[in-house]
Structures are given as structure tokens and as C-alpha cells.
Design a protein around this nucleic acid. Structure first.
Lengths: 167, 167
DNA sequence: TATTGTTATACTCTATAACTATA
DNA sequence: TATAGTTATAGAGTATAACAATA
């Protein structure tokens, strides 16, 4: 993996404050994400989208429908089918029928899937703790709070651009 | 594009503070990046890696070697070759010889490339200003400062894992 | 021998659109 | 007609490894 020398080169004008902030935000998330992806690949032979799908299912022991997964993971339906197929083939998740709608499935973690996710989540948590160990708890709080404003603003923009509210 | 409902579902344990911060950071950067990528595609028929490569060259009017681009963009050499080939084919960048080393090239923006980048950069800047318009200047400063700590810590970790200093 | 850059290849992730089956 | 999910396809983005030319 190369060193991130100069991604911030994109900043160049009178709105340099926002640009520099964005490029720094992007660099931070890329650096952390690269380590997480590499770790998932090397230690668990899996990928971030697969981990994220399993994380959603761990939160919803009763299972989630394909459409719900698609929404929550911010990807289109075909991708969820592909990732789910892989996980089904490995016995980590299963598709169950939905009462009253024979078109739909609930996708749920199997026992093996739950155990496998627990092992990955423990390691994942350690990577993240390491990534932020340089910051005081007060800094963590402040960052979380400020990023909350940023996140809410993005959601507002998306809602305005694409008035497709959450069911 | 779907709404990012519940990516923060990954957080689940006693280190919830770090996990929630990480997932929020990731969500923010994904939301902004998706809009930037979509805009570059729709309005300029280009991609983020191409934009980033041109941004590096704009900063270095004398040109950069392929290896330097690879380092700065955090991708491996083959990718830089591919992106550069596209941009050369469109007349936006050019490869020039390097005195004293016939293996290497300098890659440089052409006049057309410079003009094309200027138009994209103006629009890009507006997307980013919009993305952060909900925050007070004071918040922007604070975020920038805190993310500076995060970034530095990631660089320290990478330097420790991969002692491959910048030439 | 090491380095610069290219080529070839493969894999993951993604979006789009056409499709099947149910509703 | 509309919806849930699948399939097929194409393209972006990436890494790896083998290679040619030069140092």
C-alpha cells in the first residue's frame, strides 16, 4: 500500500477551507478503509460489502428482505442478490419465505454465520480502536457530533434531490 | 441512489464510541463521494481517479513521473498507466522524456487539459461548498483540525507497518 | 541486480435494464 | 399495473505478476 502523499492537492481556490476539509475527510476514510478491507481479506477471506451485509443481519435476527438490505447498504438490488448468493453458498446466511408474500424472502444469519460474524466483528473493532487511539475521548465526541451535522446535511440534500422517503 | 439508512448498524459493543465515529465518518465520505462521482460522470463524462490525476498535474506544471503519480494517488503502477493512456488519447495530458533517465516519463497537462480541468474544478468546488454549507466556519475549522489528528495517526500507523518512506 | 513503466489478467463492486413471479 | 427479486451485461477500479528497457 502506498503512502497518501498529496491527495489534498485538489484544493486550490477561495473556497479552500471546504475543499481542504473534504480532501482530509476523504483521505482519513480511505486510509482506514484500506486497512479494514485488507484485514478482512487477509484474515477472513471476505470483503467489506459482505461484512456490512452480515452486520445488518446481526442487528435484525428475524431477518431482512432483499429490498431492505438494498436500501440499508445503499446499493441496487442485483448486488444484494450476488452477495447473498455467495453467503448462502458458504452457509453463512439463509433465505426464508415471507408469510403472505410469495415474491419476497427474509435473509437471516445461520448459526455458523452468526459465529463467523462475531469473530470478524471482534477483530474489526480492534482495527477501529487502533485507528482512533491517538484521540482523546473528548475529541472523539466532538468529531462524532460535527460529523453528525455533516451527515444530516447530506441526507437533507439527498432527500431534496430524490424525494424517495424511507418506507 | 438509495438512502443510507443504517450503515451504523456495525457498531455493537463496549467500544461503541470509536465504532460509531468510524461508521459516521465512512457514511459522510461515501455520501459526498457518490455525488461527486455522479456529477463528474454526468456533467463531464469522467471519473474521480481521472480527476484526481489531473488535479495532481495541475499542482505540478512541470509534470510528474508515473511512479510519483502512483505514490500520490495511492494506487499501483498499472492503474496509472491505464488512466494516463485514456487522458493522452483525449489530448488532456502528454508524456515527456526525462533528461538522464530514458526509462521514465514526465506526465503533464496539455493546454486543453488545463482548460478542461479548470472547468471541472470550478464545478467540483461548488459541490463541496454545498456539501458543507450547513456548517459554521468555526465548525469547519474544528473538523479540519480534528481530522488532522486522525490523518496523522493513520500515517504513523502506515509508516510503522510499512517502513517505505517518501522519496 | 534493481528500477521504471507496461502489459495481461482476474476479481470485486457497482449500475442498468430486461426478465420472472407474484401482488 | 406495480412490486420483489433475479439475471445478464458492462464498466469502474483495483491488485498481482510477468515482462521489456534502462540504470
Amino acid at each position: 500500500m502506498n503512502a497518501p502523499l498529496d491527495l489534498e492537492a485538489r484544493a486550490h481556490s477561495e473556497h479552500a477551507q471546504e475543499l481542504r476539509l473534504w480532501l482530509r475527510l476523504l483521505t482519513c476514510s480511505q486510509l482506514i478503509e484500506k486497512r479494514v478491507r485488507a484485514g478482512l481479506r487477509e484474515q477472513f477471506d471476505t470483503t467489506l460489502p459482505r461484512f456490512d451485509l452480515m452486520a445488518q443481519l446481526e442487528r435484525h435476527p428475524e431477518g431482512l428482505k432483499m429490498k431492505e438490505l438494498s436500501h440499508r447498504l445503499m446499493v441496487t438490488g442485483g448486488n444484494v442478490t450476488g452477495i447473498t448468493d455467495q453467503l448462502v453458498a458458504e452457509g453463512l446466511v439463509e433465505r426464508l419465505g415471507v408469510d403472505g408474500d410469495r415474491r419476497a424472502f427474509r435473509v437471516r444469519l445461520t448459526g455458523r454465520g452468526h459465529a463467523a460474524f462475531a469473530a470478524m466483528a471482534t477483530q474489526h473493532e480492534q482495527w477501529i480502536v487502533d485507528a482512533f487511539e491517538g484521540l482523546a475521548p473528548r475529541d472523539l465526541d466532538q468529531l462524532h457530533r460535527l460529523l453528525g451535522k455533516v451527515k444530516q446535511h447530506q441526507l437533507d440534500i439527498n432527500a431534496r434531490l430524490d424525494p424517495d422517503p424511507i418506507e
